[in-house]
């Protein structure tokens, strides 16, 4: 008999309930993380429909493999990682990982001083979704998830240098988009 057992946290109870296959616990976990994960999936998927498919598959994987969760990190990180891996798998299956030739002009303007406060989240997501799949992937992983280029290279099966160059190009495209948005906004203000 253990005299000093660590009291179980709510997260532990939630995990154990999911491992036991209790549907109410699974629903609880879904309710807890579904909004954040939906936003994650929308960043990786080109459309919201595909984001929902991605999330559906991701949550099924979460519940099927939750007994393998080692609890060495917060549960949210683990769920997020599964969503990202699902996104990578889906994109790989759809053969969208090939680099498309961007027709957009690459901005040469430095990005210092960029303020995104004026943009709504939908606008920012729309900009990211408009990127080519591999650019979108590299940008998400580097700029938002915080992976370094070496890790990204291993995840995508590309070299570190390729990851860097693709990120730079994605970044330049986004800067161009922001610049054009800024110009059109200024013209709109002047005309008024």
């Amino acid at each position: 008999m253990k005299l000093f057992t660590k009291p179980k946290s709510d997260e532990d109870k939630l995990i154990e309930g999911c491992i036991a296959g209790k549907r109410d616990m699974q629903r609880l976990l879904y309710d807890l993380y579904s909004r954040k994960m939906m936003a994650v999936c929308m960043r990786y998927a080109p459309t919201s429909f595909e984001a929902e498919d991605m999330m559906q598959e991701g949550f099924v994987k979460v519940f099927a493999n939750i007994q393998n969760f080692k609890r060495d990190c917060p549960l949210e990180f683990w769920v997020r990682r599964i969503m990202i891996n699902t996104a990578l798998k889906q994109l790989r299956q759809k053969s969208l990982m090939t680099v498309s030739h961007e027709t957009e002009e690459v901005s040469n303007i430095a990005s210092e001083g960029v303020i995104l406060t004026g943009y709504s989240m939908d606008e920012l997501l729309s900009m990211i979704q408009s990127l080519a799949p591999r650019y979108r992937m590299v940008f998400n992983l580097y700029a938002i998830e915080g992976y370094n280029h070496k890790e990204i290279g291993e995840m995508l099966g590309i070299s570190e240098g390729t990851s860097k160059s693709q990120y730079s190009r994605a970044r330049a495209i986004l800067q161009g988009m922001l610049e054009r948005q800024e110009k059109s906004y200024q013209e709109h203000v002047i005309s008024q």
């Binding site: 909004r35 936003a39 960043r43 920012l124 700029a143 938002i144 986004l174």
Partner: peptide, 17 residues
């Protein structure tokens, strides 16, 4: 700044499924 701005706005963003 660009990366930080995107991360600040989107990392914990939520969307309704």
């Amino acid at each position: 700044t660009l990366e930080d701005e995107f991360q600040r706005r989107l990392f914990d963003a939520e969307a309704r499924p």
